[in-house]
Nucleic acid binder design. Structure first.
Lengths: 163, 163
DNA sequence: AACAATTTAATTGTACACAATATAACTTGG
DNA sequence: CCAAGTTATATTGTGTACAATTAAATTGTT
């Protein structure tokens, strides 16, 4: 139980302002990080969500796997309304192929092309480029990651049908 | 100081995966928070970005001010391409008025209508509703906010954090 | 086998984000 | 005072996000 201090924290004015600060911090930081990625990714012709999809595909590819649309969706918390057009754009750029499974005709798997596989070598230095130009303590960043994970877990844990 | 461990952290494989985890955590947590707001805000007929705009307007209104589009943009880190249509939708819903300043005809100020001002009373319990249904320690949330602010500051350069 | 229920993607429609461009209004150097 | 430059907002176009719906394929039940 939470019990403590959900209504005794602060005045209503501060709560609204405070709330602004907490959740807005997440909103603003996310967009600032994405903005920092943008020039690096545009060299590869990728958007940030496309990059996230490619990260999953590169990972899966090493295990000899090509994920389905719904597997990608579970991993990235995105639905087909977002993924289908995104994957079609990656396919247009010849980075992936989309194949309907002969096993189950409903299922579409995304697999890397040679070009898509090769693109990984141009992406490997992106994390380094991003972090090194930035005055942040890596340890604090790890701690932040942990807190974000915990928050995400708390947010997703409450829903019965989630995950 | 950065100096340490920008290239000695981990193998390239882990860096790509690690990077996924850090920045993806931000991306996923942000969307999860927004999703948690959605049902509460839809009672007010607001989207999350519209809610953020209203927070600023409610704050400014108490100081007898109505911000310009660019002031809103600086506060929320959004440009006119996002704000102009958003503000027009708020205007259509009669929550705000958009007035061109007679002082400088380029400037558009957003001011609350009576309806928009009254909506605040229905919004005040949203932060509480959001936090109370969630198994998170408020202190850790404050710490997280601090870390996010720090990150945002680092990403934006040496900009004074508004506030 | 028949058929309702479920699952998987795709589609449609609305609303951000943001780059690039346009336009009108102000400012300033000559 | 006027041309040139700057500023503030608006517009256009692309690409997410996500709710709601659709459609096709599969599964479960009888």
């Amino acid at each position: 139980m939470i019990s403590k201090s959900c209504s005794e924290m602060a005045g209503v004015d501060e709560l609204l302002a405070l709330d602004n600060q907490i959740c807005f911090a997440l909103y603003a930081a996310n967009r600032a990080v994405t903005a920092r990625y943008r020039p690096l990714l545009s060299d590869l012709g990728l958007t940030y969500p496309q990059y996230l999809v490619m990260l999953v595909l590169w990972e899966q590819d090493r295990a000899g796997q090509s994920p389905t649309v719904s597997e990608l969706g579970r991993r990235l918390r995105l639905d087909s309304g977002t993924l289908t057009p995104l994957l079609k754009r990656l396919e247009e750029r010849m980075l992936i192929k989309r194949n309907r499974s002969s096993d189950d005709e409903r299922v579409v798997r995304a697999s890397l092309t040679g070009t898509g596989r090769q693109l990984r070598s141009r992406a490997v230095n992106i994390p380094e480029q991003l972090l090194c130009g930035l005055d942040v303590d890596p340890d604090r960043l790890m701690a932040l990651r942990g807190e974000l994970r915990r928050l995400l877990e708390a947010l997703e844990g409450v829903e019965p049908s989630g995950q």
